[in-house]
Structures are given as structure tokens and as C-alpha cells.
Nucleic acid binder design. Structure first.
Lengths: 357, 357
DNA sequence: AGGTACCGTGGGAGCGCTCCCACCGGTGAT
DNA sequence: ATCACCGGTGGGAGCGCTCCCACGGTACCT
């Protein structure tokens, strides 16, 4: 807290008060600055005896590296940001973020890296974030829940900041991405319904400008195609991930195909809307119509009857994001561009079977 | 991303790639480095014309200060930490933290300060935190939900890191603190019950090693004393902030004082436990026994009947914590010790009346 | 014996900023 | 006219670290 920059302190660098520096550790250990630096940073090019001497000096002096100095000299920050482009309320309300944070935190705990949580829900916060990124205050960025038209990914690319996105924006995502297997998850849901003897299976989609929702439609379509269904036998109605959307889609489906005996909804929330309409129409679940959702959220567990749903491995996705991001940061360290090919991790989903199907 | 330390880049500092530096801005504006620094930092000792010229150069070059360099030279980080000595799950589960974070974030948004969220639930995380603090990577610390025997406050004092605690650990708290008026909140609850004609009012306390719980007992005691009650007429039973504790305390109270007609519980959770016991004993709420809780949590709103409860201004407490912390940091900047007297803010509570009383 | 290799090491230079001192010219007091 | 003063300014020095070059020593080759 005491000494500041400037000449003002040239007289005797008193031992008391200030934190010890590399130089002081070096003097104590009877070696040079460079050697201490090598020990601190775990370089292998140090003899065991020297390393031991330095470590002793570090312990005696209670030396802790000055992060600012290191950041300045090495041009890195040892910090990464988890950017949440949502208002904070959403962050706390949805278990998705909590799980993600858990995975990220767990994977990061073996590291020297510091995680920053940044909300960018409002315009103001976004401007702040842009400033923050422009200042290169983080070595990399984790992007979750990004909308298709968000300018953030482009900004990151332009600033050449390593970034990993969860839920790619399209099949040709330019950023390194982590995703759950939406296609496979949808397939497993539909195949489950088929195996239960259902024959007229409808699908309520999410917003089709969301890539993941699109993949789920593909999974539905191909599962039925592989079961011998023709294109004309697909019962697809689009929702928008909301409960109201689920209700509307379900009403339309029921009107057009009164003989349907199963519904695969693209999210638990939409399944909840669908359930209301089915019940109002006098259809029993699962006796008359089987229902399957997606996300395996709290809604699914508390629905009446409990909802079969596709679980995404959110925690593992968080871990995977960190793995990829750290790799990308490491890659970029020596040469600006090396492995240009982007990496895309896709993690398996799991069908959680409950009474609704 | 390109240039590193060392001599390696001495040949021509090309405009492309690297971020502009203070020096470059100064050259562009035709002034000295010091002057640009003054403008950037809003010093008043700059003429309007010069300021305009510098600002133009900053805009043209897209200059953004290098945080690491500033931190190194000025010995500050422009960051503060919100330390949560709980596992992350608690953090997401309890609206307390969410509200607190909202207040803190709001108050900080006018500032250049960066907020770090640090969990210190496990031993491992705590060791990490200690290292973090020893490296002085933040200018100040916000401490929430700290237990009486936590060594963290001492560590902060020893490292001379400014800190503000929410919920002082005792009446003689050495750290600057922010609290809600537990005493006044309890008084208002009891006075409310008296005004509703209740005459035999019991109190279920929280853990008495928590200072706030102690204050609530004082409020209960003095409200009754001022209403003319003698010490012998106090009906106090201690809980431990848990639902089970609330049940136990309520059972004991009911056994000892079957004629009680009101209960003031030191938390909503304990009130919830008490309600179960009252109901099992055939007491109607509020007809036979009025019930009042503390915290005004979601539990209170969803209880049957909805629970009258004392609301704490958590968001405002968050704001107040930031105010005090920033003041403390500013104070300490020129002279290590100036205003030694600690500040303690106490914010008013509000009784939210519902059907249970 | 001389040459080459390599390991371990010391220390110069520089990262981009803040702080402070010195200096400038213009005022107002003497 | 002289001097002290003051607002405004330029730039040296230094913050603590990393990076890299240079250097001495040992080991191994020819």
C-alpha cells in the first residue's frame, strides 16, 4: 500500500511494509533474477539444488508474484471471462447458468486462471463489456446463450481474443464451440416414443432461428424416416420456446391431426404449455397422448405427470468449454495463428424417462 | 497479442497490430506523455484546448489504457471482490445473494471499478482466496454472510486490505460494516402484534452466536418491556435458523405456554417450522396464534396463510457497502491511515403485513 | 589437443503507465 | 523594473516482471 511509482522512493528500499520482489528473493537465494523467474514459472531448465534454494527463499520471504508486473511484461492476464448476455435475474433464475458455472469453476480450479463473471444484459453493460474487451483485460472469453444476431462474436474475432461459444449459432460456426447433441437427443426421444408403441408422433419446435432447435427438428425427422415414415407423415408445428407458443402449437396440431398419440416438444416449457391444451381437450397423459420434453429442467420433475425429458450435460459442457479455451489460448501464445481449424465439441444427451411417456 | 517484453521488438514500432500507447497518443496530439495521462485521468490541471486535442487523438487512435501498466505504476487494480464464504449452490439458492449482487452492481456501474465474484466455500477455495488476497489483486473486499469464527476478516486486516462486512460479527465489529436494523425490525414486528391485540407473544430466536439474531432478541425484549411487560413474561426459545429448529422451539413453547397467542420467529424458515407444529396442535393461524417471520423471503409469500415478515433492504445494503468500501479505498490512498474510526451503516427494515397476523 | 554442443545461469532491456520535479510564460505585488 | 507566484506542461525515473542474449562450465566428439 505504501510505495508508489516515481522517484520518490529511491532512498533505501526498506524491508518492512512493502511486499518482497523477485529481486529480493534472488538476493536471498544467492541467484539471479532470471533464475527465480524460471523457478516461479516452473521452467525445467533449473538444477534441483538451485530450485530448492529459491523455493526456500520464496517461503521465508512470503513472496507472492506481482500480477500486474507479470501481466505487463508477458502481455497476458491469466484471467478469462464468462460473458452472460442476459440480465442478472435470468442468470439466477435458470439452473442452466448455475450448472455451467459449476463445470467451469471445477475445471478451472486446477489452474492459475481467474474467472470473471460479466453480465451484458443492458446496452450500458454491453458498452462496458466492449470497453473491457478492447482493453484486453482477459486472455479469453466464454460465451453462453448468445442470440443469432449478437455482434459480440464478431467483436471478439476482430480483437483476436480467443473465445468459445456454447450453442453454436449455425452449422458453420466460426468460433470454437461446445454443444450438446441436439440431433441425437431428439432422435432418442422419438425412438423412445416409437419403442413405446406410439405411431402418430408430433413435434413442437423451438424458434427455428436457433441452431439447436433446428437440429432437434432434424433428429425428429430422421428418426421417423429411418422408421419408415414418409415426409408427408411428419407432424411439425413451430413454437418459440415459450409456454404460450407451446399452447398455440399444440392447439394447431390437435386440430389438424386429432389422431396423434405422442408429442415431442423442443423444450420443457413448451411441453408444459402443450400439456395444458391436451388436458383441456380431454386427452389423458400418457394414456391417450405421450409427452416428452427437452432440457430436463425443474419443470419436468414437477409436472403432473412428471415429464420425460432430454437432459443436456451442462456441467460437462462447462468443463469442455474451459478445455477448449485454454487450448486455444495456449495455441495462440507462440504464433498468432497456428491451428486455424476450429474445434467443435458435441456432448451426448441422456433421455430421462418419467411417467409422461 | 503480438509484441512481448524484451528487446525483440526494438525495430520500428509499426502502427498495425499493436494497441496504441500513451506515447503515441501524445505524439499525435502534439503534447507530452504527462499531459495525456492527466486528461485520461480527468485531472483539472489541463487547459481546455489541450484537453480537446488529446481527446481527439484518443478517439482517432482508439486508445484504451493498458490496465496492467497502470496497475503496476499506480499500485492499484481498480477491482474489488465480493467474497461469498459459501458453496456456489447456496449462492444460487438464496435470493439474498442475488439481491446483494444487484445492489452492488448498480452502485458500481458508475465507476471504473470491476467486480469479482469469489466463492470460498471449500477449504481449497479458501486457500486460493488467501493467495489471491496476498497478491493484492483487488483494492478492496466485500464480505457477506461471514460466520463468527471466520479467520477471513483478520487476514484482511493483516494484509491491510480495505473491507466492508455485511452483518457485523458483534457490537464491536472492527471492520466497516453494513447491517439492517435488526433491533428495530424485531421491535416493529412485536409492536405490530401488540397493536393487533396479542398479549402473549413468544419469540423463536436464531443462532445466538449470530449478532443479528441477538439484536432481534433485544428488539423483542425491549418492545415488550416498553409495553409494560416484566422480564418474567418473556417467552423466548432458541432455534438455529433451520426449519427443524423452528419446529423444536415451537413445540417447547407450546408445551410451556399453551396460552400464547402470537409467535415472532427470527427467520421465515423457522416460522415455517413453527407453523407445522402449530397446525399439528390444532391452532389456527392467525385466529388462535398470529405468526410473524423475518427476511420476507419467497417462503413468506408462499406460506399458507401468507406470512407477515420483516423485510431487509438487501439491495440498498449492497449499495451502501460499495459506498463505504470506495470511501475507505479513497481514504487510504494518500496516507496509509487517516480516519481510523470505522463506519457502520444501519439501514431500516420494513414490516410486510400479510394474512398470518 | 582442439572443437562443438549444450546446460544452467546472470542480467540488460523493455512492457506502458503514473508520479513528480523542473521549467515555461504570464500575472500581480513590491 | 524586479521578484515571487501559479497554472499549465514536458519528460525522467521507476513500478516488478518476462524475455532473451551472452557467458562459463562440463561432456563428448574428432
Amino acid at each position: 500500500m505504501a510505495g508508489h511509482g516515481g522517484r520518490g522512493r529511491s532512498e533505501g528500499r526498506g524491508r518492512s511494509g512493502g511486499r518482497p520482489t523477485l529481486e529480493e528473493v534472488a538476493a536471498r537465494a544467492g541467484v539471479g533474477r532470471g533464475t527465480v523467474s524460471r523457478v516461479i514459472n516452473g521452467s525445467p531448465r533449473v538444477s534441483d539444488a538451485t530450485r530448492a534454494a529459491v523455493e526456500a527463499a520464496v517461503a521465508e520471504l512470503g513472496y507472492v508474484p506481482n500480477t500486474a508486473a507479470r501481466a505487463l511484461a508477458a502481455n497476458r492476464t491469466d484471467a478469462i471471462a464468462l460473458v452472460v448476455p442476459e440480465p442478472e435475474t435470468r442468470f439466477f433464475a435458470e439452473p442452466y447458468f448455475s450448472d455451467m458455472l459449476r463445470g467451469v469453476g471445477a475445471e478451472l480450479s486446477d489452474t492459475e486462471m481467474q474467472l470473471l463473471l460479466i453480465f451484458a444484459g443492458s446496452d450500458r453493460e454491453r458498452r462496458r463489456l466492449a470497453q473491457y474487451l478492447a482493453a484486453h483485460r482477459v486472455d479469453g472469453v466464454l460465451l453462453v446463450s448468445v442470440h443469432a444476431d449478437d455482434p459480440l462474436p464478431d467483436l471478439l474475432a476482430q480483437l483476436e481474443i480467443p473465445a468459445v461459444i456454447s450453442g453454436p449459432r449455425s452449422a458453420g460456426e466460426t468460433l470454437t464451440s461446445v454443444d450438446s447433441d441436439n440431433y441425437g437427443g431428439a432422435r432418442s426421444a422419438v425412438e423412445h416414443l416409437l419403442s413405446r408403441g406410439r405411431r402418430r408422433i408430433a413435434h413442437i419446435t423451438g424458434r427455428l432461428d436457433v441452431y439447436g432447435a433446428q437440429c432437434r427438428v432434424d433428429g425428429y425427422r430422421e428418426a421417423l424416416r429411418d422408421a419408415g415414415y414418409g415426409t408427408g407423415e411428419l407432424l411439425i408445428e413451430s413454437g418459440d420456446f415459450t409456454e404460450e407458443g407451446g399452447r398455440r402449437a399444440m392447439s394447431a396440431l390437435l386440430a389438424a391431426h386429432p389422431d396423434l398419440d405422442a408429442v415431442f416438444a423442443g423444450s420443457d416449457v413448451m411441453a408444459s404449455g402443450a400439456r395444458q391444451v391436451l388436458r383441456d381437450a380431454g386427452r389423458r397423459i400418457p394414456d391417450d397422448v405421450a409427452l416428452v420434453g427437452y432440457d430436463d429442467s425443474a419443470i419436468a420433475r414437477h409436472m403432473d405427470p412428471p415429464l420425460t425429458s432430454v437432459r443436456q450435460p451442462i456441467v460437462e459442457m462447462g468443463r469442455a468449454m474451459i478445455d477448449l479455451l485454454l487450448a486455444e489460448i495456449a495455441d495462440r501464445r507462440p504464433a498468432p495463428v497456428r491451428s486455424v481449424e476450429r474445434r467443435h465439441a458435441v456432448l451426448p444427451t441422456e433421455l430421462v424417462t418419467r411417467a409422461s411417456s
